[in-house]
């Protein structure tokens, strides 16, 4: 059976896996974005707070994802819980870092002007600082998403959802007729998903970044 025939017979299963993969990454990205921006907003104004946030999130990233997921299984069990935890944690770093860098990069004269015309702390953050820091934050989100696409495949090790199941099944039965096809289908699926997400982010950027600061 060649690759195309394989796709033809298994497309039902493949589409389900793809959908689950995308859905897991998407949901975890939403959580990671909210959490990451929150951490950034809380810590960007203090020197050590910002460093602490960046260092601790990058420390998480140095843990091999396969090991991390293995360590989580005894704590939270198999399936969805370890997948969500791992994806969210790994997605944090680029968002937190870009959020802090972006917020710190806002021209102090503009913050001064915002204060001077009578904007409250919250309004300043929502109307001036976050919109100006949004382009780097969005870049962080893009980077995170790319990374999570790959890491999500490993979640299959903990019986998580997604295209990782194809890859692991293929790797487990190397030498059998469909082993290569399975690995190939899983990998190509992830690459295509990553490209689709990236295109969506470009569109999101066009829609949400003010024309006044678009590069």
């Amino acid at each position: 059976m060649n690759f195309w025939e394989y796709l033809g017979t298994r497309h039902q299963q493949l589409l389900t896996d793809t959908y689950q993969h995308a859905s897991a990454v998407f949901q975890c990205m939403v959580i990671a974005t909210l959490l990451g921006v929150l951490i950034g907003v809380i810590s960007y104004r203090s020197g050590w707070g910002g460093s602490l946030a960046i260092t601790s999130t990058s420390a998480i990233l140095t843990i091999p994802s396969l090991a991390a997921i293995g360590l989580l299984i005894p704590l939270v069990g198999l399936g969805v819980p370890p997948t969500v935890i791992i994806l969210t944690l790994y997605g944090l770093l680029p968002i937190v870092r870009n959020c802090i860098v972006g917020l710190r990069g806002v021209d102090p004269a503009l913050v001064d002007a915002a204060k001077g015309i009578g904007m409250s702390r919250a309004r300043r953050l929502l109307k001036v600082e976050l919109p100006l820091a949004w382009p780097p934050i969005l870049t962080g989100i893009r980077v995170s998403t790319q990374m999570l696409m790959g890491i999500a495949a490993i979640a299959a090790y903990a019986s998580g959802p997604g295209l990782g199941n194809e890859i692991f099944r293929g790797l487990a039965s190397l030498g059998s007729a469909n082993a290569i096809n399975q690995v190939l289908a899983g990998t190509i699926g992830i690459v295509i998903l990553a490209l689709l997400f990236d295109a969506a982010y470009v569109l999101l950027g066009r829609l949400t970044i003010s024309r006044g600061i678009r590069a």
């Binding site: 004269a109 001064d112 002007a113 009578g118 100006l132 006044g212 600061i213």
Partner: peptide, 17 residues
């Protein structure tokens, strides 16, 4: 501050508005 106008060097306009 809302009752006091404030103008600064390099205008202080918000570039995204």
């Amino acid at each position: 501050r809302r009752k006091i106008g404030y103008a600064i060097q390099s205008s202080g306009l918000f570039p995204h508005m």
